[in-house]
């Protein structure tokens, strides 16, 4: 595969209205040279997966602060698999206890970033992911 921008869907499943974190992450990923598709608040897993498929994204970043992450994150991963998009890397963030983070990782959420995470850590996670080794952002 040739060099191309990495595409990331930043999505907010669930019913909370706290999108500050999602917007900060979207901005940081933009500045790192990624194409970020942001879909706004209160998305159902079905809406998020439909957008991920149509946008042909490499990754989906989920932000949830309502406490429903244990239901919503694995559901989204599972729907992606059903849609034939099992290659899409899913990561997440929000108010997520360590025990939950471990269980989320077991269900296919590859990374979980809690409050206070340096956004450069998220960029590093993507840059160093083996799937994207050959796909540096265009201007990197």
């Amino acid at each position: 595969m040739t060099e191309r921008p990495i595409r990331v869907l930043v999505a907010k499943p669930g019913l909370d209205g706290h999108d500050r974190g999602a917007k900060v992450v979207a901005r940081a990923l933009r500045d790192a040279g990624f194409e970020v598709i942001y879909t706004g608040l209160r998305q159902t897993p079905q809406q998020i997966v439909a957008a991920a498929v149509q946008e042909d994204v490499d990754l989906v970043g989920l932000s949830c602060l309502s406490g429903a992450h244990m239901t919503l994150f694995p559901k989204i991963k599972q729907l992606l698999v059903t849609e034939g998009a099992e290659d899409v890397v899913v990561f997440g963030g929000g108010i997520i206890p360590d025990d939950d983070a471990a269980r989320l990782k077991a269900s296919g959420i590859e990374a979980v970033f809690g409050p206070g995470t340096d956004t450069r850590e998220i960029v590093r996670f993507i840059d160093q992911h083996p799937r994207f080794a050959a796909l540096r952002p265009v201007a990197a």
């Binding site: 921008p5 979207a26 901005r27 990923l29 933009r30 500045d31 790192a32 040279g33 990624f34 194409e35 970020v36 598709i37 942001y38 879909t39 706004g40 159902t44 079905q46 809406q47 439909a50 957008a51 946008e55 952002p137 265009v138 201007a139």
Partner: peptide, 19 residues
């Protein structure tokens, strides 16, 4: 123009028929 990155946000408003 500097990083090649982008925020593509038009979908936020296009939710009526998102599925």
């Amino acid at each position: 123009p500097y990083t090649g990155g982008a925020i593509l946000g038009d979908r936020i408003r296009m939710q009526s028929r998102s599925t």
